Amino acid sequence: MYGTATATLAATVTKSGGFGFIGGGFDFTSSSSQLSTLEKELLKARELLGLKALPEQDSNEREFDSLPIGVGFLTFHNDDPSGLIPLIRRHRPVAVWLFAPAGDQHTRLIKEIKSAGCEWNLKIFVQIGSVHTAVEAINDGADVIVVQGSDAGGHQFANNSSIITLLPEVVDAIQNSQKEIFILAAGGIMDGRGIAAALALGASGVVMGTRFAATVESEASRATKSVLVSTKDGGVSTAKSVVHDALQGRGDLWPLKYDGRAVICDPYKDVLAGAMPVEQASARQKKATSESDTSGMVVWAGAGIGLIQDIRNAGEVVEQSRLEAIRVLNLLSKF
């Protein structure tokens, strides 16, 4: 959710009793403009949460609050944390989320990030899409495994399954490892019913991406939010494909083992039907986006999109989802 989940959304979720993340991008080298943007968002989050301001760069002060939000990074481009480590030490986020390695980047990254954050017990979240990648993440030192099923919006493993089958198998594999690992479920969860189902499958909690993209605090455009609310029957209105990236002109950005789920738009239909080459469809998509033409835009969204009825405050989504999950679980306990 890079560009969508910023300080305002993350801080609101955390203040409401959830745990917010800021999308940090995929370049965490010392010259990264993405990290410069992230630093501004972290400073804003500290202010929104009413925390003490950071000490000056040359100060010897060490007693200041850690930041009760997380930052997330895509890791397929490099494992050079030269820009990331100083930022983590300065801002003290309590969690770092990693996803999409092209090779063994996480082996080095997790070790160095955890070492940088050991003073305030920083936790590492790793998003996975199979039992094999879950075991790899555990061996690399992850504290939290985010089990992402195929119903998820945005990018994911091209070969995966829904959390209905994937989550219980990952739970069993982690229990067999005899390590204390927390498990979160992600993929198509939009309300308390989905939360209750994930908890029944063995998760400790859930991740909700698409639902929070459709909130007041989200940085998604007005046109994007309109699509998120108006699209129904998400199982057939969205599709997992690398074509979505090609339409956005970044077909070479992601390794082939990842694709993404988005709402099916007209340029996508034209490419699949062979009625238009990708280059022409991409230009059409770009024009549609600039003009807020929702019929031609790529909008990343999970298969549960049909459950989104309106644009609400993020805090309200947290609270209502929690209460609905409790209601459903109490109802099930009577059987």
Rank of each mutant, 00 (worst) to 15 (best):
L9E: 03
G17R: 10
F21A: 02
T37E: 10
E41H: 02
L42M: 12
G50E: 00
G50F: 02
D58T: 15
S59H: 14
N60V: 01
F64A: 13
F76S: 14
D79C: 15
G83S: 11
R90G: 06
P101I: 00
H106N: 15
R108Y: 13
E112Y: 11
E112L: 15
C118P: 03
E119P: 12
F125R: 07
V146H: 10
D151V: 06
G154K: 14
H155E: 11
A158R: 12
A158K: 11
N159S: 10
S161L: 15
I163W: 05
E180R: 04
F182L: 12
F182K: 12
F182H: 09
I183C: 06
R193E: 14
G202I: 05
M208L: 06
R211T: 03
A214M: 00
S218H: 02
S221H: 02
K232P: 01
G235E: 08
T238Q: 06
A239I: 05
S241L: 02
V243G: 01
D245W: 01
D252Q: 09
G260S: 07
R261A: 00
P267K: 08
K269L: 15
V271W: 03
V271C: 01
A273L: 10
A275M: 07
M276K: 09
E279C: 03
A283D: 13
R284M: 14
T289Y: 06
T294P: 05
A303Q: 15
Q309P: 10
D310F: 01
E319S: 13
R322M: 04
K334R: 09
